[in-house]
Design a protein around this nucleic acid. Structure first.
Lengths: 338, 338
DNA sequence: ATGCCCTACACAAACGTTTGCCGCAAGTGC
DNA sequence: GCACTTGCGGCAAACGTTTGTGTAGGGCAT
């Protein structure tokens, strides 16, 4: 449309219509019916057509300066390379676009110093609120943030009583345990992920609970921590195997960690699923494409992101909100067959 | 620091120091030496200390309104879930943060209507420039954008004469061909990716060139198109195999497509690398963890992102810039052994 | 005719910066 | 003694919105 020319302003269209900018502003920012409070029907039409004809676009800086709202939210994730968080962010961004707001996203690499500095950076950009995908359990950082009056929600991981949109990971863990027990497995090893992530902790807790209810106790050395990626899964699995015998099932709290685990087992000539069953988590598209298709838990990552953003928006509107817990779903494939 | 109180403004610190806001502004926005043009050394010190003590943060909306520069750049990618583009974006974001600017990123899903609408959305947010990771070869969209005077650069894919930061994909293709030929392969099938992506096209062209120079002609039906993910690679491979016999090597222009290809071969009982060698592209972390570790081309994804942003910034400063072509590197693993 | 309430706008003051220009005093050269 | 620079800083006008308040004119009841 306009070819590099000056952007059209409220005043320009006000002049063209022969009316004050205030009237134009009100008409633009009101619904059809609401606008009638401020202008006659004909005037509304004239303004609307001129606005459309000139291709007027509100200057968001001027508007934000005046209203003290930016329509911006900041998103912190451990790492965007991680398929899971990337998907969650896609959900956030999709919902944000629907609501006419924009998002900044950045990696914290799960390092506290980054979380703090990146948060301040977001705040200096005057975001209206924040979404954290990298919450650390028991970290006072979020508490102090809340005390400063900063609005935020959590996605993927939960922490304390802060509002969050997560998968019901405890239930997810239970589903895994029930499936493994039903298929005759009795000695379950768990790649539990990072100690500070509620995701791995809850999934692990779910397995432990369900096993206990079935009369099976999981020994502490069967639970190992490590990164949520393939190399992390590899290392964790090696530590697991070195600590005395091979379990007959391994639950990786993340599909990528499961892939790393399968690498180790292949190297050692341990058969999957004959010698040991493997279960992942998140139902990554890769899970179905692996040499040995992976049994896993489908988690609503996209929906978690959407919910996280909508919760934040509700908070910003001053509504009382409650955390959202979405349902996981078991997907059985070859890695636990037989 | 400040506990939810009113944000501190330029006027507040000006009043506290007992000086005009203009002076404070100039001191803040100048280097140590430059500031001496506007204030005495003692005054500079006093202003600096008060600014630090009060924790002053410039209001970017007010500044942008005045300067008509936002310090924002928009980034369009096909999909953030894609590891490759996520990594490129990490590079962009990292470089952006270093330069004190912020980025919006959004998915276009490689659909032209999204590219257009998302671009307009970014522009309505008053971005200073754009970075496209989803350029379509021969698409006039970018040309019209350039004609409108909008500044942008391309990453990952190139298109026309627009400034871009890419991997030297033709060279990458040649490296693959040379390796396969050297290890005795003669009949190469290529999963070429999307027709509109220069990445797949250039990589394919590189193979074809190198083979031709070695006196080997690749038949057109050996080149199949498809998605850059695992399911895409699976489908493309199936079409490839149905078109008459199995080649003794398959070059997937993307690691994930290679994984899909390996799935098909496994299903059909075709041995890798004995019956057919497989090569991927990008050297994803997963490549080394697969059941059959994947020979692939390492491409500087992160660096591409950094270069793309720095090129854009140079353009915005009005400098004359040239496209950047980064070097690929062959990584040999088991999938082409023997 | 008076008072009053609508409708349909207009006025103007912010919001917090940046930046062109002006001014004053002290120094400088002659 | 003069004109002239130079150093240091103030003044005020923008940038483009939003929003509280003001106000004409018309209709209505009294």
């Amino acid at each position: 449309m306009d070819k590099g020319s000056e952007p059209v302003t409220l005043r320009m269209i006000a002049d063209e219509v022969g009316v004050n900018v205030s009237t134009v502003s009100r008409v633009i920012n009101s619904s059809d019916k609401e606008a009638r409070r401020w202008a006659s029907s004909e005037m509304i039409d004239r303004i609307r057509t001129v606005v459309a004809a000139r291709g007027y676009q509100r200057n968001p800086h001027a508007a934000s300066l005046r209203t003290r709202r930016s329509g911006l939210v900041g998103v912190l994730v451990p790492r965007l390379q991680d398929f899971v968080l990337a998907t969650v962010y896609e959900g956030i961004e999709e919902a944000a676009t629907e609501q006419g707001i924009s998002t900044f996203v950045t990696n914290s690499l799960d390092r506290p110093e980054n979380q703090a500095s990146r948060t301040e950076l977001m705040l200096s950009r005057r975001v209206d609120g924040l979404i954290f995908g990298d919450a650390h359990a028991g970290d006072p950082f979020l508490d102090t943030l809340a005390k400063r009056g900063i609005k935020f929600t959590l996605v993927s991981r939960r922490s304390g009583d802060h509002i969050s949109a997560t998968c019901d990971d405890i239930l997810g863990g239970r589903l895994v345990a029930e499936h493994l027990l039903a298929t005759g497995r009795r000695d379950i090893g768990i790649l539990s992920g990072r100690q500070y992530a509620s995701t791995g902790n809850d999934r692990t807790a779910g397995v432990v609970q369900a096993c206990l209810e079935a009369g099976i106790r999981i020994r502490p050395e069967r639970i190992v921590h490590g990164g949520f990626d393939a190399p992390g899964g590899r290392q964790a699995t090696e530590r697991l195997l070195e600590q005395g015998g091979c379990p007959d099932a391994i639950f990786a709290t993340n599909d990528f960690a499961a892939i790393g685990a399968m690498g180790v087992l292949r190297d050692r000539g341990i058969g999957v699923p004959d010698d040991v069953a493997i279960v992942g988590y998140n139902d990554t598209p890769l899970a179905a494409e692996l040499s040995i298709p992976l049994t896993t838990i489908h988690s609503p990552m996209h929906e978690m992101g959407r919910a996280g953003l909508n919760l934040l928006l509700a908070m910003l509107r001053g509504e009382a909100v409650q955390s959202v817990r979405l349902a996981p779903e078991l997907v059985v494939r070859a890695s636990t067959a037989g």
